[in-house]
């Protein structure tokens, strides 16, 4: 008999071995992008060879639902360029799965906004990398700041929970406070930020982009102040650690999430190069088992130890290595 005096609930980063399936899927649905951002952590621009076709995309959706995975984030590249973007959104919402869309906002038209509102997305995240068009467009080549701002306005007006993502670099970190104030004036739900990740195109441009320690010190001072200023009105969320610290934690306590890249391969985590499965060859359930085992492989643990000793190695995160 169970002792009813033992019922508990507690916040707890549950161990992956105690879970039947992931709690979260980060799905980079395409590598195609209408921008060429200097700080892109995916090096997105063109289609990746062998990106999943419609049939495989919808099959993945079904597997996610069958495994009762409660939360999915769809990103890219620019996810709204994917021909099945709204099919995917509709499917997940029809299954009651919480869905976040990460977009540059250029394709968030009136019609798209109406559909997003109808679907009841968990949120739409729009990238805004400056308080002015000049700053934003210096980093986000081919991007238009006004389009991103207009997208925020449309989404907020339609009742879609809208979040802004701001990535600090040498070129825009001085506008951090102004971007947060702008976010508030737009009426968004929250703003997310954190240190630049040395992955993808950002790694190639690292010396030009990476803020100095002094700039980061001021950045976090501003974030603390703004968090207090907007308490109860707008969420100011920032991850205080860099990607190296993230790896230090994750190798001990892997998160219950899978990162699916556009061709159907599944990465252990963004900052590591390891592929633990391929949806062309394995079911998502098989990949979940492989993921859990992969974190214990000497090859993975040794590489993480090397990265912790020499952080520049994280720039090899997109030089993929197949495990097993």
């Amino acid at each position: 008999m169970l002792d009813p005096a033992m019922s508990t609930v507690a916040e707890n980063p549950i161990g992956i071995d105690d879970l039947e399936s992931p709690l979260f899927i980060a799905w980079q649905i395409t590598s195609l992008c209408n921008m060429r951002c200097h700080h892109c952590c995916e090096d997105s621009a063109h289609l990746m060879p062998n990106e999943m076709n419609r049939s495989r995309v919808l099959d993945l959706c079904r597997q996610i639902a069958d495994m009762s995975i409660p939360y999915v984030a769809v990103s890219g590249g620019e996810p709204m360029l994917h021909p099945q973007f709204f099919d995917v959104c509709r499917f997940f919402r029809s299954q009651g799965i919480a869905l976040k869309v990460e977009t540059n906002g250029e394709l968030v038209t009136e019609e798209a906004t109406r559909e997003m509102a109808r679907l009841g997305l968990r949120s739409v995240q729009i990238s805004v990398d400056g308080a002015t068009a000049a700053t934003h467009e210096q980093l986000r080549l081919k991007g238009r700041w006004q389009d991103a701002i207009d997208a925020c306005r449309r989404l907020v007006a339609a009742g879609v929970r809208t979040e802004i993502v701001f990535v600090p670099t040498k070129f825009n970190i001085h506008e951090t406070a102004a971007v947060i104030d702008l976010a508030s004036s737009l009426g968004v739900y929250g703003i997310y930020t954190g240190k630049l990740m040395r992955i993808g195109r950002a790694a190639k441009n690292w010396q030009a982009l990476c803020p100095s320690d002094a700039q980061y010190e001021e950045f976090f001072r501003v974030l603390r102040q703004k968090t207090h200023q907007y308490l109860g009105r707008m969420k100011v969320y920032y991850y205080p650690y860099d990607v190296i610290e993230e790896l230090r934690v994750r190798v001990q306590s892997p998160s219950a999430s899978l990162l699916v890249i556009p061709d159907g391969r599944v990465k252990l985590i963004g900052p590591l190069p390891f592929i633990c499965g391929h949806l062309a060859k394995h079911s998502l359930r098989e990949i979940w088992d492989r993921y859990r085992k992969a974190w214990r492989l000497p090859q993975v643990r040794d590489f993480v130890a090397q990265v912790l000793a020499e952080p520049s190695l994280v720039s090899r995160a997109n030089d993929w290595i197949e495990l097993y």
Binding site: E11, P13, I14, Y71, A98
Partner: peptide, 16 residues
Amino acid sequence: VLFDTLREKVFVTNET
């Protein structure tokens, strides 16, 4: 598992 997907916080309960 109780997953607050808005706050991105995970809570667990025991069997009872």
